[in-house]
C-alpha cells in the first residue's frame, strides 16, 4: 500500500527523490503520510483536490481488497 502511494506520487511530481511516505499503523486504520518536495504539493493535490481525491479513492479500493482501512494524509 505504501509502495502504491509512493509510485503514484513519484510519477506526478518534478522531484521524485523528495517523495516520502510514512506508514503509521493504527488499531483499525493505517495512515499514510505523504511528503513531497517544495513546489510539488500542487501536483499531488491537483485542481480542486482532484488528484488527491483520486489517490485516496484508489488507496481505499486497494485497502478494501486487502480487508484494511487506509487514510492518506498529505503533509506540507
Amino acid at each position: 500500500m505504501k509502495e502504491l502511494v509512493e509510485y503514484i506520487a513519484k510519477a506526478l511530481v518534478d522531484n521524485p527523490d523528495m517523495v516520502q511516505v510514512r506508514e503509521v499503523e493504527g488499531e483499525k486504520t493505517t495512515v499514510y503520510e505523504l511528503r513531497v518536495g517544495p513546489g510539488d504539493l500542487g501536483k499531488v493535490i491537483g485542481k480542486r483536490g482532484r488528484t488527491a481525491r483520486s489517490i485516496r479513492t484508489l488507496l481505499n479500493a486497494a485497502a478494501t481488497k486487502a480487508g484494511k482501512r487506509a487514510v492518506l494524509e498529505i503533509l506540507e
Binding site: I8, A11, L12, V13, K43, G46, R50, T51, R53, S54, I55, T57, L58, A61
Partner: peptide, 18 residues
C-alpha cells in the same frame, strides 16, 4: 464508476508527466 474515474485521472496525469 468512481474508482475508474480516479484511475483514469491518475493515469492521465502520471503518463502526461512522464
Amino acid at each position: 464508476g468512481q474508482n475508474l474515474e480516479a484511475l483514469e485521472h491518475l493515469a492521465r496525469r502520471m503518463v502526461g508527466k512522464q
